[in-house]
Structures are given as structure tokens and as C-alpha cells.
Simulated assay, not measured.
Amino acid sequence: MAELNTKNGLRYYSLSHRWGHGMPEWPSTPGINVGVKKFHAKDGVYVNEFEGIMHRGTHMDAPIHVTGNTPTITGYPLSSFFGTGVAVSIPKGKWEVITAKDLEDVRPKIQRGDIVMINTGMHKKMADTDEYFAYSPGLYADGAQWLVDKGVKMVGVDVQANDHPMATKLVDHGLGPTHPHLIEEYKEYTGRDVKEDFPNWESAHKILMVDGGIPAIENVGGELDLVTGHRCTFMAFPWRWPEGDGCGVRIMAVIDPDQKFRIPTGA
């Protein structure tokens, strides 16, 4: 449950999934492995060692992840990670797309300069399953372009990636198809071809991060339901890693039920 700061009435919520050994991982190269190197009964200290790529769990990509000669994880302005915004409910099921119209119609309304957290309901299903990673809903080009045109500051989605799974290497994009059976399954399920509906590889990644300069967080979760439908203060904490193509990120949402708290100007 959310913590309550009794001094000023602010309520703090974590919007990140657990990170660590055995966590559900996107179906690609080997991910996070954690081992205990020292422990108290033997060594008098406790030390873990981990190896793995950064694109696991609740994490943030950098533009360099999808386009050469673009900024790394420290290329975003620090101001991008803190501010007012909304957590919005856009319920979606198998292979549905988060559209520009969905984003336009949400309440509370998305405003210019907002941080936006999108709740499709999928974070409750995060697991080592095809349902979460292969059959998820997601953003694609028109939704991402709407967010850029709106001038939002940062975006988070509670699904497997910033892009719909049919815009990834799971099917015939980039290094794929790694999951070729999905091509025929999609056609049987929708009556359409994957490449007709999703002609470009990871359009949402490129539109948001490369074209728009907007940090985009994947696998948002935790206490997202408790802040959905509310205007909040959000903050995210990526690593200070100048060469980073992405990293795990801790997200917090803060709500003042009395709407009285303000950050002093320092004047």
C-alpha cells in the first residue's frame, strides 16, 4: 500500500515492478541474473552480483537504443523526469492499439507539458507469459505522434514495450521474426496482415524519443491503479550513465488530497 506522510498529508506511490532474479523478461537475449557472492554467516557482509541488459522490468530507453548517432540516457534534460501530469485509464485487450482518439478522450484531460502514465490494465498480468509479452496491446505511430504534438514531458505505459508487439522483432521487423507463428495468428485473429497494420519497426519508440525528445518508460506497474484518474506529481530516477542505451527506473507519484501543497519557488 501507499505510504502516508503525516507531516504534510502527501501520499506517495511506487509505479515500478519488482526487479531482480526470476523477474518476467522480454523475450530476447538473456537478461537479468543475480547471484549472492557474500553472505553474513560466511563473510559477515551481504553482496550480490548481477549481469544483464538494461531493458528489463520497469525501465526507460534512450534514443540511441533505436537510432544511431542520437542521445544516450543522460541526453534527456533532468526537468523531463519531474512534474505534474495524469495517470489515465485506457483499457485494452489482446493486440488492441492505444490510439490518438483514446488519448484525446481520456479524463483527466492530458495537457501540454504533462507527464502521462497510461493504464491499460496489463500491468496486473505481468508474468513470464505470451499473454503479457506477445499478445499485449500497445502504442503505435498515431498515438505516439499525438503525444509529441501535445507537447507532453514524459510517457509511461503498463505494457511490454513502448511499441505494440506487432511492431517489434517478434514478427517480421528488424532482427525478427523471432516469433514467426504470431504472423499467422494475427491474421487469423484480425483478418489482416501484420505488415499492413504495422508497416514500420518500433515507430512509437522513434517518434517519442528521437523525434519528440520524450522519455518513454516501459512496464509501468506497482500502485498504478491507485493513482489512475488523478492528476499527480510524478518523478522518475534513471541512472547517470553517459553511454547508456537505457536503464531500470524507479517511478513515484505524489498526491496531495487537500491540494494545498506547493513546492516553494526559493525566491
Rank of each mutant, 00 (worst) to 15 (best):
V194W: 09
K169E: 09
V159L: 02
K153Y: 00
G176Q: 13
E184T: 13
V152S: 01
N200H: 13
H181T: 11
V157W: 03
H181P: 01
Y186S: 07
G174H: 10
D193A: 14
V157F: 02
D197S: 09
H164Y: 04
D158M: 03
W146G: 03
V171E: 08
P177K: 09
K187F: 06
P165L: 09
K187E: 15
K169L: 13
D158G: 05
V148A: 01
W146V: 01
V152L: 04
M154A: 00
V155T: 05
V155E: 00
Q160G: 13
A167V: 07
V171P: 10
K169R: 13
W146Q: 02
L175A: 13
D158V: 06
T178P: 02
H173G: 04
E196C: 00
Q160K: 03
V194L: 08
I183F: 11
E188F: 04
D149L: 01
K169V: 04
W146A: 06
E184D: 15
K150Q: 08
K187L: 05
Y186V: 03
L182R: 12
A167L: 05
V157C: 05
L147M: 03
K150I: 01
E188L: 14
K195G: 00
L170M: 15
A161N: 14
G191Q: 10
Y186E: 06
E188I: 11
G174T: 09
A161V: 00
E185P: 03
K195I: 15
D163T: 11
P165S: 05
K195D: 07
E188W: 05
L182C: 09
T168H: 10
E185I: 06
V171Y: 08
G191M: 11
H181L: 11
T178H: 10
H164K: 11
E196G: 04
H173D: 04
E185Q: 15
H179W: 07
K195Q: 14
V194P: 12
A167N: 08
M154I: 00
Y189Q: 10
K169Y: 12
G151N: 01
I183V: 15
K195W: 10
N162P: 04
L147T: 00
P199S: 13
E196I: 10
P180D: 12
L147V: 02
V152Y: 00
T178A: 12
F198V: 05
D193W: 05
P180F: 09
P177W: 07
K153V: 01
V159K: 02
I183Y: 09
V159T: 15
K153D: 04
K169T: 12
H164E: 02
G191I: 06
Y186C: 07
A161H: 14
D172N: 15
P165I: 06
V171I: 12
G156K: 01
V152W: 03
